[in-house]
Lab assay of single mutants.
Amino acid sequence: MEVRTIKVFTTVDNINLHTQVVDMSMTYGQQFGPTYLDGADVTKIKPHNSHEGKTFYVLPNDDTLRVEAFEYYHTTDPSFLGRYMSALNHTKKWKYPQVNGLTSIKWADNNCYLATALLTLQQIELKFNPPALQDAYYRARAGEAANFCALILAYCNKTVGELGDVRETMSYLFQHANLDSCKRVLNVVCKTCGQQQTTLKGVEAVMYMGTLSYEQFKKGVQIPCTCGKQATKYLVQQESPFVMMSAPPAQYELKHGTFTCASEYTGNYQCGHYKHITSKETLYCIDGALLTKSSEYKGPITDVFYKENSYTTTIK
């Protein structure tokens, strides 16, 4: 009895394709271990004539594949690729409408935090270190965002349907971005203890939790000093293409032309909904596939993004 075979390709990165001759009487799992086709788990399936010449994702289970996976995804987590594939199996079914010149995501599976993050990423200057993220990001900007969303979920250790947080998501993504040249110098002034300067680099240099107003941050924000008295913390120097200011959701007025974009969060910790506000020729609110415009805006804002380049204080 002759062994019926077909020729397929296996890959971990969709760049390096490895030619395989597979036995049609055995499952993919018996031949390769966990195997995925377009995100779908085909591990328990036997090869079919229609699979001839198709590319299958496999887990990096030998040295060659491990090197290829690390170079593309910059992670050695053995569960990463499987999590990416199972997320992709959902995100490829989502709709990605162009809204006001940006790629958004039609609401499904509690994905409003991903839509808000995706919209924000198209408006701030950011370059990702893992080629996987950078490639998928370019495709997302062009309207094909399924891979990018699935990668975000995998890097953030999230599953489809789980509630997510924009600030946490951005923080994970910033860790995989090139923020080497970003720098922030802060000064804390206390009447009792004097003053202390701190220099922050990388992710810490672009994120701040405690106030939404970048102007206020430049002037000074009140913080408790270690001595128990009130101290003032203010920005001395900022070198970065953008800054992200966050605070627990509270009524906040966004003035046209003073910011790049913002995240609105309605609801409580267990259950809520994100919308995205962007400042173009007027203010726009993007909620999944829905767009509304207004000249002014007041609502429960939790993150505001500002364009920056270089700032030095005039406070002496």
Rank of each mutant, 00 (worst) to 15 (best):
G299Q: 06
K316N: 09
W94Q: 00
E162C: 06
R167L: 05
K201W: 11
L186S: 08
K158G: 02
T282Q: 11
G33F: 00
A117M: 12
Y311S: 04
V12N: 08
G220Q: 05
T10Y: 11
S171K: 14
S50W: 13
Y73I: 00
V99E: 15
A117S: 15
L37R: 11
H90L: 10
P241R: 06
T266N: 15
A247F: 04
T75V: 12
H276A: 05
Y73E: 00
T226L: 13
F80C: 00
N157I: 01
D135L: 08
S171N: 10
Q230M: 13
E162H: 07
Y36I: 00
G194H: 05
Y269R: 15
P249N: 09
G29S: 05
K54E: 15
H176S: 02
I15D: 00
Y252W: 09
L153Y: 07
N89K: 12
A231T: 04
L133S: 01
F128C: 00
D287P: 06
E308Q: 12
K191D: 13
A142H: 15
P78C: 04
P224T: 11
E71A: 13
L254Q: 06
H276W: 09
T312G: 10
Y96F: 10
P131I: 01
A146F: 02
P34N: 12
V203Y: 12
Y306K: 05
D287Y: 04
V58G: 00
D109H: 08
A87G: 00
G53Y: 12
E52P: 04
I124H: 05
I223L: 08
G299P: 06
L59K: 14
L153G: 03
K233W: 08
K7P: 11
H51S: 02
V188E: 08
A231S: 07
H48P: 09
P248D: 10
K275Q: 00
N100H: 06
V206W: 06
C225M: 02
L291E: 09
I45R: 13
L133N: 01
E253W: 11
L65N: 09
K280E: 11
Q216F: 04
E71F: 11
K280I: 07
H176C: 06
K93F: 09
F217A: 08
M207R: 04
C225I: 00
Q134I: 11
T226S: 14
I105N: 02
T313R: 08
P131V: 01
R141W: 03
E68L: 08
Q270I: 10
F128G: 03
M26K: 15
V206F: 05
C193E: 02
E2P: 09
G164Y: 03
Y234T: 12
G299F: 03
L235N: 07
Y72D: 06
L173C: 06
M26H: 15
H90N: 11
P97K: 05
F9Q: 13
Y214F: 08
P131T: 02
H90Q: 14
D62I: 11
S25V: 10
G210R: 07
K229H: 11
A205E: 01
V3W: 11
T302Q: 10
N147T: 12
S79I: 06
P60H: 05
F128M: 02
Y274Q: 05
G220M: 02
Q270K: 09
N49V: 14
N187F: 06
L151K: 04
V21N: 12
H18A: 08
H74F: 02
Q196E: 14
G272Y: 11
V188K: 15
N49C: 11
T27G: 07
A108F: 05
V185P: 03
C112D: 15
D165E: 10
L163E: 13
Y57M: 09
N14Y: 08
K127P: 06
W94E: 01
A262G: 05
S213E: 01
L118R: 00
N89D: 10
V160W: 04
G53W: 10
V236N: 06
Q230G: 08
V12D: 13
M24Q: 09
S79Y: 07
L119W: 05
D77S: 07
P224W: 10
A146Y: 03
P300S: 13
L151N: 02
C149K: 03
Q134Y: 05
K307V: 11
T211M: 14
D62T: 13
C227M: 04
F148G: 00
Y73C: 02
R139E: 11
K218D: 02
Q30F: 12
G272W: 10
C285Q: 09
M209N: 09
E296N: 10
T192R: 12
K46N: 10
I6M: 15
H276D: 06
G53C: 10
A205F: 01
Y234P: 04
V206N: 05
H256P: 15
K46R: 11
S171M: 12
G202K: 06
K255P: 06
A87M: 12
Q216I: 04
F259N: 05
Y252H: 08
T198C: 10
L212E: 06
L186K: 05
T76L: 11
A115C: 08
T192F: 12
L283T: 07
V3N: 14
D23I: 12
D165A: 11
N110T: 02
T226P: 12
K92E: 02
S294K: 11
L290Q: 15
A117F: 00
E239H: 10
L133C: 01
N129Y: 09
D63F: 09
H276E: 05
I105A: 02
V67A: 11
Q31H: 05
Y208L: 08
F70R: 14
T116L: 03
T192Q: 11
D41Y: 03
Y297R: 07
C190M: 01
Q251I: 15
G194F: 02
V189P: 02
V206G: 06
Q98D: 13
G220R: 04
I301R: 05
H176F: 12
T192K: 13
K46F: 12
S246G: 02
Y73T: 01
L290D: 14
M244R: 06
L212R: 07
Q222S: 12
L17H: 14
Q122G: 02
Q237V: 09
R167M: 05
